[in-house]
Design a protein around this nucleic acid. Structure first.
Lengths: 198, 198, 198, 198
DNA sequence: TATGAATGAGGGTTCATTCAT
DNA sequence: AATGAATGAACCCTCATTCAT
């Protein structure tokens, strides 16, 4: 029962969810519209996901998983901490720029109060990876230790999130990934210790 | 139409909106509950605000206006750019920490797609003030000019927003404003030119 | 809220309920169809009646009330017990014959298990009236006392109910009320003491 | 298709149908529950019976067939018309009292509109038997000829049906079969000619 | 202008029934 | 033939929103 959906159905569902929930506020999007667009019956969706929230959360989880995988893939062979972080920064910016629907859902429409308590919210794999790298940097004396790693992560993720949001707001009339390097330099200056030669 | 409400009614409405919309996802918060809590008929709310969104937006606008005023107030007598920005940073962090309901609504429940196109969204006064300061810093060679002022603003605001969100998520078990200085140093390192001694 | 429906709306609703629930099994009739036929919104019905069951029960109650009133009206001026009972018997047969929809609902489609526990089921007024007359007859030695009054009532009502049901089944191709006197004689023989001269 | 079911499955199904459909209104009884209770897949039920209605009708038919057989069995060796009818009356009352589930289904939950048009409804064998006896009584001048035999049957069956229903309603706190003789005397007075010494 | 009844839409849920395996 | 996933239709219920008073 739980997720034995046929691959093609799941694909159509994924596309429908992406389109519908990225284009309107969560409470204005209807499961029934998703069903219609995906060519699946409403009941089938209901049987598999149980609610509007969990339908969206489930796909968000999948998408975030792909982003995580992509980050891991891209980190291969990079040793330098700064380069690692730069890469991570860039992969994210690039990913959201190329999948604006995901970004929209993630940063603009998802009902946070509910998602927060959902299992899929934690994104443990990705977050742990981040924190490991950041803590390592702190231990090695490369990154500032004035604040705990979580705050450094807030610093990075907040910039990405806000940048995406404003990029959409400004009409997506420039390339985020092209600016990614300059943006990352700001981040790096903020978190690296060596630069504190003010 | 706009604002024929008696002051006491408006006050009760404000409290009700703050409480109800900060405690549950937008689509789960009911205008009937707001009406009940405020002791007004829901039709009265409609006559004055037109829709659930507009009701919340209107109060958010008021609250943001107060924050703006507070910032302006606190900037008085400060000349140094860094100190100005530090102050602005601190005032915001402090404000959201002391008014978590506003932060929750702003960063967690507001239906963005609809707010974005609403007049109240722009927060022109506050944003212009920010941009003016940032551009001035860029012109004076104090702040990095690699990116336009808007991006610098994203950098600052993203950090604040994400910090607030994570603070709530972590159970509000620490003081943001106490960390504000350390956090601001990161921001400052990121945006100031002098620090670019990489 | 409870039953402030405008008279004309209520009338249309009454007609729709009568038509729809007399023409199909209860579980195949839909509130929405009633709403459509009555030109009322589904929500309005729901707000006033709460469920399909209670919608039907409420109207059945009204109709039974009218039948009760009619019986009372017709009993005026009759003193003789047999004539009283004959009248009651005839009024019922006549009423159901002229309002076959009510009979159909009452004897063929109403979900008994649920109606039984509903307040409207008891028809206290009508039943009490019956029992009073029957008991009086027993006390006066006119009616058989071998069984309690309730059973006598079963005897009478069962005949009416079954007669109606079969009349419908046989295509309503004869007049029940014309047979009512002959039918009542059977009933009277069955319940009267004097006749026990076999 | 019809009846390829293994005997033990059929038995379990019979018990499940009896239990579930006698305990709740037809539209609230779920075929899935029946399947679960019988340990069969609901699809199997569908393959064999085609619909919820047909499932119940089929078993009702079986049960009524048993009742018919029982009546026939008990009539053996009885010649007197009154005794015949008394026997028939008693067997039915006794049967329903000992199989209240059947009575409940028959008189309280079956969706009549649909059953009426089903082949199993007619109960030709039983009804014909009845009518033959009654007509014979009329021809012999023992029973009243004021009404056709069908109406006499309504008289008898209506009393049984109503008695059962009220017996259930009254909490089954007395024995119907013990009253059967007194009840039958009423019926007999009603239909016999000799008693018309009014 | 303030109110509450009426409406329409959608969500959650259950189910009979159909389909594909 | 037996199974269970998919479907469509209803039901119950809640709301935002509109209407009539």
């Amino acid at each position: 029962m739980l997720n034995g959906l046929k691959p093609d159905v799941k694909e159509r569902l994924e596309a429908a969810v992406l389109e519908i929930f990225s284009e309107s506020d969560f409470h204005k999007a209807s499961i029934r519209d998703v069903a219609k667009k995906a060519g699946v019956s409403f009941s089938t969706i209901y049987n598999h996901y149980g609610s509007k929230e969990r339908l969206v959360f489930a796909f968000v989880d999948v998408w975030m998983g792909k982003l995580t995988d992509r980050i891991i893939d891209h980190l291969q062979g990079i040793e330098d901490l700064k380069e690692k972080l730069r890469k991570v920064f860039w992969v994210q910016v690039d990913y959201y720029e190329r999948h604006p629907g995901l970004g929209r859902i993630l940063f603009m429409t998802l009902p946070m109060k509910t998602w927060m308590v959902d299992e899929t919210f934690k994104q443990k794999k990705m977050i742990d990876m981040f924190l490991t790298v950041l803590r390592q940097g702190q231990e090695e004396g490369i990154l500032t230790s004035d604040l705990r790693a979580g705050i450094l992560l807030d610093f990075i993720m907040g910039f990405i999130q806000r940048s995406f949001f404003m990029w959409v707001l400004r009409g997506q009339d420039y390339s985020m990934s092209e600016q990614a390097n300059a943006m990352f330099e700001m981040v790096w200056q903020g978190i690296s210790k060596s630069s504190k030669t003010k």
